[in-house]
Simulated assay, not measured.
Amino acid sequence: MPAPIHRIAIVGTGAIATAHAAAMRAAGRRARLVSVVDLEPGRARAFAAEHDVPSVYPSLAELLAHEDVDLVHLCTPPRQHTPLAIECLDAGVSVLVEKPPALSLAEMDALVAAERRSSAHVATVFQHRFGAAAVRLRALTEAGRLGRPLLATCATLWYRDDDYFAVPWRGSWDSEGGGPTMGHGIHQFDLLLSVLGPWREIRALAAKRARAVHTEDVSMALVTFAGGAVATVVNSVLSPRETSSLRFDYEHATVEVEHLYGYTDDDWTVTPAPGHEDVLSRWPGGAPSSPSSHDHQLTAVLDALDRGDPPPVTSADARNTMEFVTALYASAFTGQPVRSGEITAENPFYRRMDGTGAPWAVVAR
């Protein structure tokens, strides 16, 4: 039986929407981009013409009223992610939402509740989970083939100048929910969390050093995992030599990746511990190399929808990463360690990532 054809719409036709359209083309006959939505009609029409999309709508409500779609890709600015995703779920339409899926744990829990009352599903775009090397590393870790994970480092060191933050919705707690912790490093430490499993405690700092923003422009954290591993996490938009890197030190090997916005197998290295050279045979060289990309996540999403399963990355997966972000800010702004599960509805950081306010906001007044 041939695989079903999924009718898909994109909401928001900014830069990242191009990657989503490309992923649909890569999916072949399984995915058909039938509609786009954008508040700017000219931009929507131009995008539709470029990608051969038959219909354009000015709002998600009109799209859902007039089109029969199976999946909506949300590519809007972050503030709109949760309300639009809930609108899709309430209409019984599954949704793939760009990161971050919500601006707070409160919003994330509202999204989880909407999924529970719907027949549809929500997934978050964390495409770094889907490269072949990451899939292999998780399998080896779960099987204990590399020994126990002991130590990890995770760095997202990027450079964004003042012109980048001139876009009105950037650099604001209200519109982005945070700075590089929320909007840039989240891809890297989501991959870290997917490999090392549940985190237990975080101690952090965040600072505003150079950019004219309301949020932080750099953050750092020390993390303890339930399995015993410890990790450092650094997120920056102040770093002229840009890099994204992860290093995992296991009992029997060090596994590392360095890239910028996406990796292939060639970006990974494995260094065995003395006496454990056989580890290299568990990381096959010359294997087909699928990169981290929207293409491979969309394939996984379509596979899940074909089976009737919740697509990856599930709302539970995304909530774990969002709780990590929340805890990082809470620790940074209170000066106290924060444990998993500690931020409940009564905590000020539950409803806003800046909680009672960033320290530099107090200084500014």
Rank of each mutant, 00 (worst) to 15 (best):
P2V: 12
A3N: 10
I5C: 15
H6C: 08
A9G: 07
V11T: 03
G14P: 11
A15T: 14
A15Q: 13
I16F: 10
A17W: 01
T18G: 15
H20P: 01
A21D: 13
A21I: 07
M24W: 04
R25A: 14
A26Q: 12
A27P: 08
A27F: 02
R30P: 11
A31Y: 04
R32T: 01
V34R: 06
V37L: 02
D38R: 06
L39F: 01
E40V: 09
R45N: 10
V53T: 06
P54R: 05
S55N: 09
V56Q: 01
V56A: 02
Y57H: 08
P58D: 02
L60P: 00
E67I: 01
D68S: 13
D70L: 00
L71G: 00
C75I: 05
H81D: 02
A85G: 06
C88L: 01
A91D: 04
P100R: 05
L103V: 10
A106L: 08
M108F: 01
L111E: 02
A113D: 08
A113G: 02
E115C: 01
R117C: 06
S118H: 01
F130I: 11
A133G: 06
A134I: 13
A139D: 07
E142D: 14
A143I: 12
T153S: 15
C154D: 13
Y159E: 11
D162H: 15
D163A: 09
D163Q: 14
V167L: 06
R170Q: 13
W173R: 00
W173G: 12
G177F: 03
G178R: 03
G185A: 15
I186Q: 12
Q188L: 10
G197M: 04
P198V: 08
I202T: 09
L205E: 15
K208R: 12
R209Y: 10
A210N: 04
R211G: 11
T215V: 13
D217I: 12
V223N: 13
G227L: 09
V230M: 10
V230W: 03
V233E: 00
L238K: 12
L238F: 09
P240Q: 10
R241F: 06
T243S: 15
L246E: 13
D249F: 02
Y250E: 03
T254N: 07
T254D: 06
Y261C: 14
G262K: 05
D265C: 05
W268Q: 07
T269Y: 01
V270I: 08
T271E: 10
A273N: 09
G275K: 10
S281G: 11
W283H: 15
G285A: 07
G286V: 11
P291T: 07
S293N: 06
H294M: 09
D303T: 11
R307Y: 12
D309S: 05
P311K: 00
S315Y: 03
D317Q: 09
D317P: 05
R319K: 14
E323Q: 12
T326V: 03
T326N: 06
A330M: 08
G341C: 02
P348F: 05
F349Y: 08
F349D: 04
P359R: 04
V362G: 15
